[in-house]
Design a protein around this nucleic acid. Sequence first.
RNA 1: GGUCGGUUGGCCGAGCGGUUAGGCAGAGGUCUGCAAAACCUCGUACAGCGGUUCGAAUCCGCUACCGACCUCCA
Length: 501
Amino acid sequence: MQNELVVYNSLNRKKETFTPLEEGYIGMYVCGPTVYSDVHLGNCRTFTSFDVIYRYLLYQGYKVRYVRNITDVGHLEGDTDIGAEDKISKKARLERLEPMEVVQRYTNGFHDMMRIFNNHSPSIEPRATQHIIEQIEMVQAIIDNGLGYVKNGSVYFNTVKFAKSNAGYGKLSGRIIEDLVAESRDDLKHQDEKNHPSDFAIWIKADPSHIMRWNSPWSEGFPGWHLECSAMSTKYLGKTFDIHGGGNDLKFPHHENEIAQNHGACGCAPARYWLHTNMLLMNGKKMSKSDGNSITPEELFTGDSPHVSKGYSPMVIRFFMLQSHYRSTLDLTDDALLAAEKGYRRLMEGNQILQKLDGATGSTDASLDQEIRAAIAGCVADMNDDFNSPKALAGLFELVSKVNSLKAGHIAMSEISAETLDALKQHFSDFIYTIFGLKDDTHAGDNGNGTMDGLMQLIIDIRQNARATKDWGTSDKIRDSLKALNIVLKDGKDGTNWVKE
RNA sequence: GGUCGGUUGGCCGAGCGGUUAGGCAGAGGUCUGCAAAACCUCGUACAGCGGUUCGAAUCCGCUACCGACCUCCA
């Protein structure tokens, strides 16, 4: 049984016992999106993974400050730091918008999508453009500490010098600085002002056409991509904090450079535990905006895509994500989604049945009672083991079988104690709603004040009367007509349930 | 080319030294007015070849294939 929380720390490539810097409090920074276009599903998976982590930490009673940034300047497009264009800037130019219009539009879209997937908002969501001063100060500190150099108004981080320090460069991503030259593909070797190919820009002088620019001691320009995370994590979480997260593809160079900058400016490592989520694949390949192998969340919801046979609800997709571990790649296929949809419904219906169960009279010594308590503890242990949601979910499904057996009368209510039944109800709903962040949409259409449920109960009663008088015509008409409305009736020993499909 | 990771039954996906993962699909059975649902039982999977071990899907080596990063991406 895993009683203490263990997390996989990318920094050391192994699982470590998690101990926060300050007991009871956790500072967590997750790299947010660059808001230059619509969110894509891969982002959703990453932020959903961290949402579950955040939720679990809260569930464990920690006070968590969860910081997730919005990158709205500095993220360049192109091969080198020099001459490349800022993503926001480019989009603004192409669409003839103010850069902040671009930022606002896609930030709104991002927030909407996070809400649709039922992700909690972070505690603080800082933007890079709101922290230009902090970034300039950080650049100055890096220069003052001898790790930055100025070339024609731009400032670069001296990775070669930093690599010789105790902290070293490349620990997170396992890179060796000498190799970074040799390893680079030939077409990436245009290195203009930099002293060394692995050096990177922390302040970039804006060329005349560039529309996003700020004054600085070095030039009118803008901050480098990696800098905002260093500056903002330091500002809101301190020089050293507990967890830093992000997608796997950010390990290098983004996170590696963040670490270098924090060392360069503050003299210490930023985060103690680095958590990286793995990629969402589609049909075996990384989902990517650039190569067309992608599906938007909207297309997935409506089914308007050649990649899927039908639409899937946001909660089905969330469930689908929960079924794999955050550090594993997840392959999105229509078959897998179809299976997830059924699994999701089974879980939700299981909970509905469970919450209506009563009449437990057993003792806490009974074997079923102990089995259920062990399963409950097992789910918590699974989450303690590096947030193993698929394993915890498996535990929940075993409980669903027990619940269904109790409901069907295959297991007598006298085999479970009232205390255990209450604990099970509480635990089950804690897991699916509070920790996993699922919502039950199997009764969609209910407006919250019970109208739908009341109507359905009336219809079910009428059908029950028809069945009692063997009026199969009426009974089947009701069932078939509802089926045409995607409402399915499920007859059981003691009554009929309904779900919306 | 360099670095890292993966290859599990029809599909998805846990496990990572000895115990049933789980979901979906499939087969048989129970229940039911019929159907659905539910419950029970079942398949005996771990890329290949060597090695370590009393014992390996799990550790080591080699081979094959796939992927990620080294450009932009979560």
